[in-house]
Nucleic acid binder design. Structure first.
Lengths: 242, 242
DNA sequence: CGTACGGTTGACGAGTGTCAAGGGTAGTGG
DNA sequence: CCACTACCCTTGACACTCGTCAACCGTACG
């Protein structure tokens, strides 16, 4: 509400940005309207269907983007096919690796996703001009570093059941920003195979642990993807977060 | 040589910094002599013995530091005592988490270590003034993020033998900057217990895999800590890096 | 000489992976 | 409307890697 009002008083704000879901949380919040206008001239929206890989591992990257909605998975693959998801990104995260031409992992839309694409050159010019922008990107990098290290603990030291519970906790925390006090209801953005690749397990083990959590009453499952968590504290406990 | 010559032509360079091992690689390389002089007024050197924990998990942090020499391990502990090392830092890495008062992990000297300490306020003032400094820190964060994600693949998808070989490869790559083409000789900075905590294994499994690599001729071991790798390519292959 | 500590080795068992079969649902075509 | 297929998920039986428990070794140190 407040934000819409502000928009009315800033008629110079680019039209395409006015209704942007990511403008207030993403990197664009570091930009002044004039700068946003300049950037928006070079940017474009794009819808990506679930399952679509839009950056390949080892591929050269000529653009950056903001996630407007949806979930993107970042994954690494070994030569023999073993795969590990090394990060999930949600709106309004920034994607792309400043100061590096080549991606060290693949990016794939886990759900239907919409992104706002900026050419590489435009972003790098802006970074040079606007310290606040680099500050924003730095903070996002630090956030992702924290998440990666938390997940290292999960991968290295937790049991299969704790891993699955940790994953469900993670998704729950990204689903219900408002009523995540006690219970939570959400759609899983990943298939069982993807969850396995995120947790360093097999499909079968993920499935068994989901069943076990269900039988213990910690979660309810409908349609494989729709999950209800009646008591988030119990789930956190099952995840090993005492 | 060249750098020493430059120092002679910049007499305003702080005395304590002139012989600093980290000055040309660490964050200090982003500073002009005058800024370095200002910062050095508030900085101090400190030696830390191996095994000494100097930042506790959940502790508030009032200072940042550069590693001058030695190896520092960053680790997380679960409530029941399970532990995971989430990063190793070598000279001239910067330590400390900008824009966050509390550490989410513990920092402990793995070997005898020397660091250069800066008060929190001084660094944060400098960051605000010098965009290049934030750029430097941003780059270090991105480097650590890459390393963390590489390690996620190791933790989630590699076998015990591949994990141990990966660890040895990592150490080798940080030991012999000059002759790491074919073979490598180095001292392990971590005990078996610490290696286990880094790899998400037990001491016994690490020990067994070391023995196995030794019997296969991929490594030679003396005194538990002294390791020789006759063929780094073979080690990389054993680590799953084809 | 005794103790402490870190590392190795062996025997055994638990947890997770592998392989295989089967169930549920959606989409397709007759 | 009903096969028929394809896909994802679940479940079971079994195997194997890795963890657990215990004994032992070598070195450092008092």
């Amino acid at each position: 509400m407040d934000l819409l009002a502000r928009d009315l008083h800033q008629p110079e704000l680019p039209v395409v940005c006015r209704s942007c879901e990511a403008r207030n949380g993403g990197i664009c919040s570091a930009l002044k309207p004039a700068q946003l206008a300049e950037l928006s001239k070079h940017s474009s929206r794009r819808k990506i269907e679930a399952g679509n890989e839009f950056i390949g591992q080892g591929e050269s990257v000529s653009s950056y983007s903001n996630i407007l909605n949806g979930v993107v998975k970042l994954s690494k693959v070994m030569a023999d096919g073993r795969q590990q998801i090394v990060g999930l990104q949600f709106a309004p995260d920034f994607m792309g690796r400043p100061f590096q031409g080549e991606s060290r992992m693949a990016a794939e839309a886990a759900t239907d996703t919409e992104i706002c694409i900026f050419p590489r050159r435009a972003i790098e010019r802006l970074i040079a001009d606007i310290p606040e922008l680099e500050h924003q990107l730095h903070n996002q990098a630090l956030k992702e570093l924290d998440e990666a290290r938390d997940w290292m603990l999960t991968l290295g030291r937790k049991t299969a059941q704790e891993k699955v519970a940790s994953f469900l906790s993670l998704i729950a925390s990204h689903s219900d920003p408002e009523q995540q006090d006690i219970s939570s209801v959400f759609e899983l953005p990943l298939s069982r195979a993807e969850i396995a690749d995120f947790l360093g397990l097999t499909i079968e083990t993920v499935s068994r642990q989901m069943t076990k959590l269900r039988k213990e009453g910690i979660i309810q499952i409908e349609n494989n993807r729709h999950v209800t968590v009646p008591d988030l504290d119990r789930l956190a406990f099952a995840a090993g977060n005492d």
